[in-house]
Amino acid sequence: MTDQIPTPHQSRPTIGVHFKCCNVYVTIYQNHTGTAYAGHCPRCAARIEIPIVDKGGSASRFFTGS
């Protein structure tokens, strides 16, 4: 056991994705490097990755994947 002081849990940014393949809505999280939002469909495991860009991105917090 260590004597480290626990740090407060910081939540990772999220976005909502509707997977048309299985008609499922899920929340996906920002990856650990902060370069994209990555996740998968909970039913068929279809992967989705939405890159985070400095200019020209979207202000939307909800997306549709197929």
Rank of each mutant, 00 (worst) to 15 (best):
M1G: 11
M1H: 05
D3Y: 09
D3V: 00
Q4C: 01
Q4F: 00
Q4I: 05
Q4R: 12
P6L: 04
T7D: 06
P8G: 00
P8I: 01
P8S: 05
P8H: 04
H9T: 04
H9C: 01
H9N: 13
Q10K: 05
S11R: 04
S11C: 03
R12D: 02
R12P: 04
P13S: 05
P13A: 08
T14C: 01
I15G: 04
G16S: 13
G16A: 10
G16T: 13
V17S: 07
H18N: 13
H18I: 05
F19W: 13
F19K: 02
K20N: 08
K20A: 13
C21W: 15
C22N: 13
C22P: 10
V24Y: 11
V24A: 13
Y25E: 14
Y25R: 15
Y25C: 07
Y25T: 14
V26K: 02
V26T: 13
T27D: 15
T27R: 15
I28G: 06
I28M: 11
Y29Q: 13
Y29D: 06
Q30G: 01
Q30Y: 12
Q30M: 15
N31L: 09
N31G: 12
T33P: 11
T33W: 15
G34W: 14
G34F: 13
T35P: 04
T35A: 10
T35V: 00
T35H: 08
A36V: 05
Y37M: 02
A38N: 03
G39T: 04
G39H: 10
G39L: 09
G39E: 05
G39D: 02
H40Q: 15
C41V: 05
C41N: 07
P42L: 05
P42V: 10
R43S: 11
R43T: 13
R43E: 15
C44E: 10
A45G: 07
A46Y: 12
A46N: 01
A46E: 12
A46S: 10
R47Y: 09
R47H: 12
I48N: 03
I48D: 01
I48A: 11
E49N: 08
E49H: 06
I50G: 11
I50N: 05
I50R: 05
P51L: 14
P51W: 14
I52V: 13
I52C: 12
I52G: 09
I52F: 15
V53P: 06
V53R: 02
D54T: 05
D54L: 02
G56F: 08
G56C: 04
G57F: 04
S58T: 03
S58Q: 10
A59I: 01
A59V: 00
A59P: 06
S60P: 00
S60C: 12
S60Y: 08
R61M: 05
F62N: 12
F62I: 03
F63D: 14
T64E: 15
T64A: 14
T64M: 14
T64D: 15
G65W: 15
G65L: 06
G65R: 08
G65I: 06
